[in-house]
């Protein structure tokens, strides 16, 4: 099954989803397509007109361009997803209002889609690491 991971470029989530036999949907794969096919100079910083139009599907014109740009990449992935895993409190996942609003918007889009969702916290110690692995394993095995 196709699993959306949030943060969408997380090594931990990408590896665990693949390890337990599912296909992770990640930013990297989406950006690779832009590098190989459309040959954009500096993705994801530079975008095409098509990206701008895709972003407008998920957020209005008055929303900051950073939010729309991110949603142009992540929105179609959420549409493809059959389940999602969200990792909360990641120490690197913070930022300005644009980044934060995008994170909230992503969670909203996932919830609105009504797919199975697993919420886990970023591990702070070994026990939490074990909890994350066990929860993800159980969740993904339950999807089969």
């Amino acid at each position: 099954m196709k699993i959306f991971i949030d943060p969408p470029n997380s090594l931990i989530l990408y590896d665990l989803v693949e390890r337990f036999g599912h296909e992770p949907l990640s930013t990297m794969a989406a950006i690779q397509e832009k590098i190989d096919r459309t040959e954009i100079d500096m993705p994801p910083m530079n975008v095409s007109l098509e990206d701008v139009m895709k972003g407008l599907k998920y957020a209005g014109i008055e929303v900051p361009s950073g939010v729309r740009g991110r949603l142009a990449v992540w929105g179609p992935m959420i549409e493809d997803a059959e389940a999602a895993i969200i990792m909360e409190d990641c120490p690197y996942s913070f930022g300005c209002v644009g980044c934060h609003r995008t994170n909230l918007m992503v969670r909203y889009l996932i919830k609105r889609k009504g797919i199975p969702v697993l919420d886990v916290n970023y591990p702070n110690d070994e026990d939490e690491g074990k909890d994350i692995v066990a929860k993800i394993k159980e969740f993904l095995e339950g999807l089969k």
């Binding site: 591990p123 110690d125 074990k130 692995v133």
Partner: peptide, 10 residues
């Protein structure tokens, strides 16, 4: 990478 040992042990 710094936190991978937690997942490794997990």
């Amino acid at each position: 990478w710094e936190d991978l040992w937690k997942i490794h042990r997990g």
